[in-house]
Design a protein around this nucleic acid. Structure first.
Lengths: 203, 203
DNA sequence: TAAGGAATAAAACGGTCGTTCAATTAATTC
DNA sequence: GAATTAATTGAACGACCGTTTTATTCCTTA
C-alpha cells in the first residue's frame, strides 16, 4: 500500500533533495546533471522522475521550502517588543538560519534565473513578505525615534545584503563562533540604523 | 596586414565581450551557448575561436578585465587623506563603478565556480588586493579613534557586501539617482563604523 | 590584377543533456 | 501464494553542447 511504501519513498525523496541542494550549491543548477544527482543518491537517473516531474520542479521545490522555512523560523521567534529588540531578533534569527542552511541559501540566491516566470514570481513574493517584516521594524523605529533612517527600503536592502553575506565568507570551525559573528553583526546593524542605546539583548 | 585588419578584429573582439557579458549576466555562464553569443554578434560559432581559445578563456578574460578596471578605478581616485575621507571615497567609487558595470559585476560575483583552479586563484588574488585597501582604511581609522570597529576583517566584508548589493535592486530611471543612493550608503557606512563626525565629503 | 594571408562559414565530431518507455524487480494485499 | 501495484532499471530518443576541420570569402599589398 501507499502508506508504508510511502515512508520509504519519502526517505528517497529527501535524499534527492539533500543531494541536489549540495550539488546545486557547489556547481550551479545548470552544471549539475540529473545523472549526477541520481549517482549521489545511489540510484539511476530515471528513478528521480517518480519524485519530481522535471529538473526545474526539483529546483523550485528546494527554493520554496527554503523560503517557507525562513519565514516560519522568523514567525516562531518574532517578539512583540520595541523596534530595537525586534531588529536584534531579526538579525540574530537571519544569521543563524542562513549559517545553518548555507547550501540552500546559496541555491536561493543564485538560481532565481533558472526558474520559469511564474515560479520566479512565487519565490519573489515570499522574499518580499520576509523583507516587509524588516521594513516594518525600521519604520516603527524611525517613528519612535529609536532609529535614524534616511530611506526605509534602501536601509532594509543594505541590512539584508550585509547579514546574508555572512555565508559568503563564514566557515564553521574558524576563528569566530556563530555567537561571536552574530554579536558583531548585531552591533554593526544597530550603529547602521543609528540606534542610540540598546540593552545587550544578544539573541 | 595585421595592423589595419587588427583594428577590425579588435572591434569584433569587443563585440564578443559585450555580448558575452550581457548573456552571462542574464542567463548564467552554463546556460549560454557559444552559438548564442555568436548569433548576438552576428557571426558563426566557429568565428569566436579566432578570438578566444575556449569558452572558459572568454569568461576569464571578462572577469580579469573587470577586476583590473575596478582596482584601476580606485587607484586613480584614492585620496591621501584621513581615514574618514578615504572611506567616503572608497564607498563612492565602489558604488559608482558597480552601478556602471552591473553586468560584469554580476558575472564576477556569480561565475567564480565556473573557473579552473588556477584562474580562480588569480581572480581571488585581485579581489583580495582590493579588499585589503578597505581593511587598511578601517585599521587606520580604528587606530586614530575615528572609527569604532570590533573586527576589521568582518567589518570590511560587511561593508563590501552592503555596497555591492546595490546592483541587486538598483535600476536607473527609478525614484533614486545614483548620487542619492551613494549619499545614503555613505551615511549608513559612516554610522556602521561608528564615525562620530564627518564633513559632507560627498564624493 | 595576381598572390597571400586573415577572417569567416559550413559541416561534422564525439559527448552529454533532460526525458521517456518498455521491461523487470520488489513489496504489498487478498 | 497468486495477483496487483509500486519502484527501479537499462536502453533509447532527439536535441544541443564545445570544439575542430575544411573550404570559402574578403582584404591588403605588391
Amino acid at each position: 500500500m501507499a502508506r508504508t511504501v510511502g515512508s520509504d519513498g519519502e526517505k528517497t525523496r529527501s535524499a534527492i533533495r539533500d543531494a541536489a541542494t549540495g550539488l546545486f550549491a557547489r556547481h550551479g543548477y545548470d552544471a549539475v546533471s540529473i545523472r549526477q544527482i541520481a549517482a549521489e543518491v545511489g540510484v539511476q537517473a530515471a528513478a528521480l522522475y517518480r519524485y519530481f516531474a522535471t529538473k526545474e520542479d526539483l529546483l523550485f521545490d528546494l527554493m520554496q521550502s527554503h523560503m517557507d522555512a525562513l519565514i516560519d523560523s522568523w514567525e516562531q521567534q518574532r517578539p512583540n517588543d520595541d523596534p530595537t529588540a525586534r531588529l536584534a531578533a531579526f538579525v540574530g534569527n537571519h544569521i543563524r538560519f542562513h549559517i545553518e542552511r548555507r547550501h540552500s541559501t546559496h541555491v536561493n540566491n543564485m538560481e532565481l534565473r533558472s526558474l520559469s516566470h511564474d515560479r520566479l514570481s512565487t519565490i519573489l513574493r515570499l522574499r518580499g513578505a520576509y523583507e516587509k517584516e524588516l521594513r516594518q521594524i525600521l519604520r516603527d523605529g524611525a517613528e519612535t525615534g529609536a532609529f535614524v533612517i534616511e530611506d526605509v527600503t534602501l536601509t532594509a536592502m543594505a541590512i539584508i545584503q550585509m547579514i546574508t553575506g555572512v555565508i559568503v565568507w563564514f566557515r564553521p570551525d574558524e576563528r569566530l563562533s556563530v555567537t561571536q559573528v552574530t554579536e558583531t553583526y548585531h552591533q554593526m546593524t544597530m550603529r547602521l540604523v543609528g540606534a542610540q542605546e540598546w540593552e545587550s539583548q544578544h539573541v
